[in-house]
Computed example of a mutant assay.
Amino acid sequence: MKKNRNKLKIFVLSALIIFIFISINIPYKKALVFLAPESNDILCYVPIDAGETFKIKYTHSIHLSDVIESYKVTESDKIRQYELEYEDFAIGMPSEIADGENFEMKDGKYYITNMAREFSHFDMRLGQVRAKHTLIYEDITYPLSKAIEPGSRIRIKIEKISLLKQLEGVNILDDK
């Protein structure tokens, strides 16, 4: 009788451990993630839902003025660029627009609006000297260099992440 109870306790404990292990590895939370593309390690992330927007602001390396790229999360978990704002119409900045896009100048800045460029992900290199890549989400302005080594190549995408993956990276909302 005692042997059966011990076996039952061992079985229940084993089942509980397996359940916990599986639970922390199931991706369930949608997030905007910043990954190291070589290892797929999450460097930082922001919980986000379809329809929400975010911006990436940086200082252009040649003409040293601000550039702001505006994005929206689609229902299919893609990233859609919908606007680009910049101050200098020079090297490295667009000189043409795609069909359906609008170009305007307002208050000394150039805007390309009505953009519908969709990405499953995009890569960028975090500036080492002047770029000051910054995430703007809701009322939060977060310098990416707080969580990512300047000069690093990063991949930006939308994905569901598990509790374990959340523990690996920095939740930008918690680190503000």
Score class of each variant (00 low, 15 high):
135 L>K: 09
90 A>V: 02
13 L>R: 00
116 A>M: 06
90 A>E: 04
138 E>L: 02
111 Y>V: 07
10 I>E: 05
118 E>N: 07
8 L>K: 01
138 E>N: 11
150 P>H: 06
18 I>F: 07
176 K>L: 11
98 A>M: 01
150 P>I: 13
133 H>E: 01
46 V>P: 09
97 I>A: 05
99 D>W: 01
106 K>I: 08
146 K>R: 01
17 I>T: 11
107 D>E: 13
51 G>V: 15
170 V>M: 04
27 P>W: 10
122 F>I: 12
110 Y>H: 10
159 E>V: 12
57 K>A: 04
74 T>E: 12
126 L>T: 12
81 Q>C: 11
11 F>D: 14
158 I>H: 13
114 N>T: 09
43 L>D: 04
74 T>D: 12
175 D>V: 00
170 V>L: 09
52 E>P: 13
61 S>I: 13
99 D>E: 07
13 L>A: 07
155 R>S: 09
6 N>T: 05
161 I>R: 11
31 A>V: 01
29 K>Y: 00
119 F>P: 02
29 K>V: 06
31 A>N: 08
62 I>E: 07
3 K>M: 04
146 K>P: 00
163 L>H: 15
104 E>L: 10
65 S>Y: 04
157 K>G: 04
82 Y>N: 05
30 K>N: 12
117 R>H: 12
78 K>G: 08
144 L>A: 14
128 Q>H: 12
42 I>V: 13
1 M>R: 06
133 H>Y: 01
97 I>H: 00
144 L>P: 09
